[in-house]
């Protein structure tokens, strides 16, 4: 079991009534993987993420984290196993500061949130870990700023920092650069480059520059099915991909 993939998805399917939105998707992620999931709108990318993270139950198939079958487990249980996602739409606590966000995430991970009389500022090790996370995403200068007033790109960075605060083994990044102007997406990429090496990352993203520069392996979904997977060069060369995805996007640009 030493070599069991961190995340292993086998024959995953989801029907909404008669509508099949995911059919028979299999994939796995290993230590250090930098993988991207792409596909045209409506390809079922979000459904796939929701299935894997446990937001919705699958109709068929299994999901394993480090060899443990988590198909029937709740989203929270999967989080505790180290499957962490970031959100596409920033779900942040608007009135709370950047520091408070990270404190909360670290406290939650270490199971110390039910302490009623502890002083957050005096919990050993917490301040150091938060400082490290702030530094890692370049957020130190805005640590005491309420998140609601933060620039959008910084909110995206906080989103990633929050995911990292939970010490993930598998990190799913749902459009980490959504809403960030193209000229700024390098900031996100810089931050992604600094992710821990042994982390397995699956990124869902529309920004093809980001995808090609970040991912060592790309998986293409179309109409709820896995179309193909491979390196950036293989994907761009694949005529089927051109047809369903890159071609139409190339016209759009």
């Amino acid at each position: 079991m030493i070599d069991a993939p961190l995340l292993q998805v086998d024959g995953l399917s989801k029907n909404f009534g008669g509508l099949q939105v995911s059919s028979n998707i299999s994939m796995d992620l290993r230590k250090g993987d930098r993988c991207a999931l792409i596909g045209p709108n409506g390809a079922g990318k979000t459904t796939f993420v929701n299935l894997v993270t446990g937001v919705i139950p699958p109709t068929a198939g299994t999901i394993r984290i480090e060899g443990h079958d988590v198909t029937r487990q709740s989203a929270e249980a999967r989080v505790r196993r180290g499957l962490i996602r970031s959100f596409q739409v920033a779900r942040l606590f608007r009135s709370m500061t950047v520091r408070e966000h990270l404190e909360l995430a670290v406290l939650e991970r270490t199971g110390r949130t039910f302490r009623l009389f502890a002083n957050v500022r005096r919990i050993p090790g917490l301040a150091d870990e938060v400082a490290e996370l702030l530094e890692g995403m370049g957020l130190t200068a805005v640590a005491e700023t309420a998140v609601g007033t933060l620039a959008y790109g910084q909110q995206r960075l906080l989103e990633i920092a929050l995911a990292l605060a939970m010490k993930p083994k598998v990190l799913i990044l749902d459009e980490p650069a959504a809403g960030v102007p193209h000229s700024e997406s390098h900031r996100i990429l810089d931050a992604l480059d600094r992710l821990p090496d042994d982390l397995a990352v699956l990124m869902i993203e529309h920004d093809m520059d980001l995808v090609f520069r970040f991912a060592k392996r790309i998986i293409v979904l179309a109409q709820g099915q896995l179309l193909c997977s491979g390196t950036a060069a293989e994907i761009t060369a694949d005529p089927r991909v051109r047809e369903v995805y890159l071609g139409s996007r190339a016209h759009a640009h």
């Binding site: 909360l104 406290l107 949130t113 302490r115």
Partner: peptide, 10 residues
């Protein structure tokens, strides 16, 4: 101001 209070604000 405790961790629990922080979580409640969240």
């Amino acid at each position: 101001r405790s961790p629990c209070g922080l979580a409640c604000r969240g």
